[in-house]
């Protein structure tokens, strides 16, 4: 029993590298081909079957169309957005899957956070308008021409700023709106112990008054 199990595990670790290498090789070829045509930055091989690249906003529809039509990335997995509030950017991630070689590529597009607008790809895949509708509600990104963009997606009568932006504080909003049950107080063990054990001592240290 134990022996058989060990054999299985050995088989796993002997066989797996083959597919790893195959995938890695295919991805390397792909990136080589892409770099001939387009300017890719921040290329990162996250896993043997997953890589991320950053592309220019203007070029991104071209690249995604190219990937779909010539590289076989026919399965659209995900459109997501990350708020890099420190850099004042929104990162759109288009994740595409190549069903034959079984690997994925994430195309990152950085757009301006103050004026978030992106070309709508709803004609390329039939489900994209859903993502775009959600991102419009959650991040306030405008996709001109995307169907039903202005319709409510998950929220109703929302009057605050888009809820997934980093500077929307959900806890503060919840406390302001939904009144948590009152009567709860907690104590920090360190301060509480000091107050109990040394009631007369000054709590904080004083430093130079001139500072």
């Amino acid at each position: 029993m134990e022996h058989a199990r060990l054999q299985l595990v050995n088989k796993l670790f002997n066989d797996r590298p083959k597919s790893y290498k195959y995938n890695l090789f295919q991805m390397k070829l792909l990136i080589d081909r892409l770099t001939q045509h387009y300017n890719l930055t921040d290329y990162k091989q996250q896993r043997h079957n997953l890589a991320f690249v950053t592309v220019d906003k203007q070029l991104s529809p071209d690249i995604i169309t190219h990937l779909r039509d010539y590289e076989g990335f026919s399965h659209f997995v995900l459109l997501s957005c990350v708020d890099w509030i420190e850099d004042d950017k929104l990162q759109l991630t288009y994740l595409l899957n190549q069903p034959n070689h079984k690997y994925e590529i994430g195309v990152r597009v950085l757009i301006d956070r103050k004026n978030p607008e992106m070309v709508s790809l709803h004609k390329m895949w039939k489900q994209i308008w859903t993502y775009q509708r959600e991102l419009h509600e959650a991040f306030g990104i405008i996709f001109p021409g995307s169907p039903r963009l202005e319709e409510n997606f998950v929220l109703e009568g929302w009057t605050e700023k888009p809820h997934m932006l980093r500077d929307f504080d959900t806890k503060e909003y919840a406390e302001r709106t939904y009144f948590p049950r009152p009567g709860r107080t907690s104590n920090d063990p360190a301060t509480y112990m000091r107050e109990k054990l040394y009631p007369n001592q000054p709590v904080t240290a004083k430093t130079n008054k001139n500072d």
Partner: peptide, 12 residues
């Protein structure tokens, strides 16, 4: 980071 040590330390 429980802070049990803080009050026990004479210097806090």
């Amino acid at each position: 980071s429980c802070g049990i040590c803080v009050a026990t330390c004479p210097a806090h």
